[in-house]
């Protein structure tokens, strides 16, 4: 009971902060829409992917991108907590480091999932207004998409927290996480199909855990994919377990 209350406490705080930072919510919704309409519309006018509209093709990629960015950058909040003494207030409370980690993961994932739901609705609206074509939603595909996005969120919130727990300065965090986020995003095939890539890029793409999230989402929303859904989910779950274990460890070893 003790630990559960502690987890709830951390979640409560993260959620309140999320609701107060309106600019963060707005930016996290507006940026993906710009990508989808401007980048997708612009590039889509001269690039064609067989059998699917380019904007529809990158829609799953943009969803994953928004989850990736907001999830990893959530880790910076723990650096800010350390910068003032709020982190000490939490660390000195009678709850375990594992509970603090879990609370933070749930907190960060809640933020990302709210964004994901809004973006899915935006996609649905854009499709209905005829601004993009080729996205097929059913209650079943939405449910599957949310599950895939949830696994992705928890994984990358954990990754962001691992980095944040070891960093002293927000600037340092930005540096390290940018080095991670952009390769993860560009290699994942969010913006292009991965079956015809140059031979030297291919291995990096296959090593990128985000590749499988993008592929799985494309599978359930567009019905096109490189791998089977089960294979994608399998790899995602392995990555999930790995980062959660590492995250728990990182929090245990975290200095004040």
């Amino acid at each position: 009971m003790n630990e559960i209350n502690g987890i709830l406490a951390i979640w409560y705080r993260e959620f309140k902060v999320f609701l107060r930072e309106k600019s963060r919510i707005v930016a996290s919704i507006v940026n993906p829409i710009l990508w989808l309409l401007v980048f997708g519309g612009g590039l889509g006018s001269s690039v064609s992917i067989p059998g699917v509209n380019y904007q529809a093709f990158i829609f799953p990629g943009i969803l994953t991108q928004s989850v990736l960015f907001s999830s990893i950058f959530f880790g910076v909040y723990i650096v800010w907590d350390r910068k003032i003494d709020f982190l000490k207030e939490v660390l000195v409370a009678p709850i375990s480091r594992t509970s603090i980690f879990i609370g933070k993961v749930i907190g960060g994932s809640t933020d990302s999932m709210i964004q994901s739901v809004i973006l899915l609705l935006v996609g649905l609206a854009l499709e209905n207004f005829g601004m993009i074509q080729g996205i097929y939603f059913s209650p079943y595909s939405i449910l599957l998409a949310l599950i895939i996005l949830f696994i992705t969120t928890v994984s990358f919130v954990s990754l962001g927290l691992i980095i944040g727990s070891q960093m002293e300065s927000p600037e340092g965090f930005q540096l390290i996480s940018s080095f991670l986020v952009f390769p993860l995003f560009f290699l994942s095939g969010a913006l292009f199909p991965i079956d015809k890539l140059p031979i030297w890029i291919k291995p990096f793409t296959l090593l990128d855990p985000l590749t499988y999230a993008v592929d799985a989402l494309r599978n359930v929303i567009l019905g096109i994919s490189q791998f089977s859904l089960m294979f994608d989910l399998g790899i995602m779950l392995v990555f999930l377990v790995l980062v959660i274990l590492l995250g728990g460890l990182a929090f245990k070893r975290m200095k004040v």
């Binding site: 502690g6 709020f86 409370a93 709850i95």
Partner: peptide
């Protein structure tokens, strides 16, 4: 020594958070 309350929360919310952390 340094401020350890969350300044995006209200005074009440900071106290509530503390009470939850202490079960």
């Amino acid at each position: 020594q340094d401020p350890s309350s969350d300044d995006t929360l209200t005074g009440y919310e900071n106290l509530k958070l503390h009470g939850m952390l202490y079960n």
